[in-house]
Each structure stands twice: as C-alpha cells, then as structure tokens.
Design a protein around this nucleic acid. Structure first.
Lengths: 155, 155
DNA sequence: ATAATATAGTTTCATATGTAACTAATTTGC
DNA sequence: GCAAATTAGTTACATATGAAACTATATTAT
C-alpha cells in the first residue's frame, strides 16, 4: 500500500523566515549597541550618515530610496542628526521643497570612526566563512531579495 | 612607489548586516500580512501557536526559549491568543507559578490552515534556488547565527 | 493665469516594543 | 522552619514605529 500523504509539518527552528528574522535581529541589535554606546547614534541615523558619507549633498527622499527607509523614518533620523550637529541642511535653489543634506565636519569625523567599526562587525560575522562561502552568501541573498520583493531596484 | 593604504570604504548596499535586515523585514512583513489578513494573528502569536502545534502542553518560559522571544513578548502573545480562543491555559499541578498552554480546537484548526500557507511562503522564497543552493543557505545561516551569538543553543 | 494635482517633508496619533518594576510561588541556605 | 534569593509571569512606563493627515512648494492642464 502506498504511504498516506503525510501531513505537512513546520518546525519553527528550521523555517527560513523565522531563522532570517532571529539572525537579523541579533546582528542588528549587536551593531546598534555598538553605534549607540560609542556615538549615541541609532541604526537609522547611521544609515543616513552612511549614505551621506558616500554621496554628499542629496535629499531626504533620495536617502530613503537608497536605505529602504520610509520618509518618516528618514525625517526623524535627519532631525536627530541636525540636533546633534552631525549633518547640515540647506534648501535647494531649484526646488524649495527639497532640502540638501551634507555631513558636517563633526559628522565626517564620526563617519570616519564608525566605518571601520562597522566593517569590523561585518568581518566578525563572516570570518568563519571561506571566501567561496562569502561569495555564495552574497549571491544567495541577492536571489532571496529578488524573490521577496520582485519589483526591487537592482543595484 | 607602493600604493598608499586606501581608506576603508563602506557601501551600504553591500553591507551584510544591512542587507540581512532589509531582506528579513521584507520577508517578515509579507508573512505578517498574510497571517493577519486571513486570521487576525500576529507574527508573535503565530510563533507561539507554531510551537504549541508541535509540542503541546508547555509553559510560556519554554515557548520563549524555543522562539527567541522575551517573556514580555510571549506574555502579550499568549494574552491575545487566550482572548481570541486559540489557546487555553491551566495552572501546573507541580508549580503554581507555571501555566500549561495548549491549542484549543479552534487553535488547532487555524494551525492546520496556517502551516501550509507558511510553508508555501517559504517555498516561494526559496524556489528560485536549486536544492544545492538551499542546502548551502541553511549551512551558511547556521554559521552566521553561531558567529552572531556564540552562546546560542544548538538545535 | 489659475485651478487641480503631485511631490517633499513634517507632524499627529494610535499601536508596538523593550526595560524595569512588580506579584506570587518556589527553592535555597542556615 | 524561615528569611533570603530565584523563578514564572504580568503590569507600567517610556520610547519606537507606521499610517494618515497636514503644510508648503512645484507642476500640469485648461
């Protein structure tokens, strides 16, 4: 007699979305603590600074596009960074709705300090992987990202 | 003349913690919408139900250990599921502080409906990967999880 | 030129989440 | 046997987050 169709089962600890979520939250919490302890900067604020560090003089909307943050999150992060003097804002000449954002001298200093810390945290995470495995990981994540969000921009 | 040491640079879109976070949030949001639309159940509530579905009659603390939720999150999820009648609670005979949790008939019904939906969502995510790649992914995630949280329990 | 529509960014409000304080029951050390 | 320390779970409070409403400017259509 053929086997009865076995009831599909779900073991949470083997369920990819669950594992992804736990892993990501652990990693993010570790890193957030790092930035916060040393510099009083949140993950969202750091994302804004990271984009400005590479690409100064862009607007909040553009930052949102690059960082996958919604405009409210960007607005709040920007507001905090203005208060703390890490970034500066000036109105765009062409369009008064837009605000051009740049790192201040203080912001650049902090940026230059955080970059190696961030890269170090990433290295700690992947150093147990061989270069081959690291490449696999990048490729797999790219595929998953596309599957999760089909209309995602390609970078 | 040898090259000057190049300043370490960080491209956010290539930074693993960032990519993990964006991917995980996208996947979680998709799934949360699914459970919520059809059953009015949050991700946290689903995690509790998922554990009880495999392993009935355990306590909130044990659920917390298995699901990587803190006790407050478990308490809130349990409270919601009691209200909605998906789970039931009785005091433990041996230790009156402990509460034994089980799925109700209604809870089992919903559980049996959600399992295939969850597995389907997982399949949608990984179906673009070959079986080999799926195995690689699982192995890589396991290594990363261990690197991120060295004292993590092994399952 | 002007009314209607769209866009950039902020504010408001309702809800989610994390930390710490709390209650009640149990275990430990003496 | 009892005070002190632990443990299970809940509640309270402060902060974070997301959705929708809002303000100001710019663009489009007539």
């Amino acid at each position: 007699m053929p086997d009865a169709p076995s009831k599909p089962s779900l073991r949470l600890s083997q369920f990819l979305p669950y594992r992804l979520s736990v892993l990501s939250n652990t990693v993010s919490r570790n890193i957030a603590d790092l930035y916060d302890r040393e510099f009083g900067i949140s993950i969202w604020q750091w994302r804004v600074m990271a984009v400005l560090g590479e690409n100064s003089g862009i607007t909040a909307t553009e930052i949102g596009q690059v960082t996958a943050m919604d405009k409210v999150a960007v607005s709040r992060a920007v507001s905090g960074l203005l208060d703390s003097g890490h970034i500066a804002r000036r109105a765009s000449k062409e369009d008064a709705r837009r605000a051009i954002l740049t790192l201040t001298a203080k912001g650049k200093e902090v940026y230059d300090q955080i970059v190696p810390i961030a890269l170090g945290a990433e290295r700690d995470l992947v150093e147990s992987l061989s270069p081959d495995e690291q490449a696999q990981l990048a490729a797999l994540m790219e595929k998953l990202a596309r599957a999760a969000e089909p209309d995602r921009p390609l970078w």
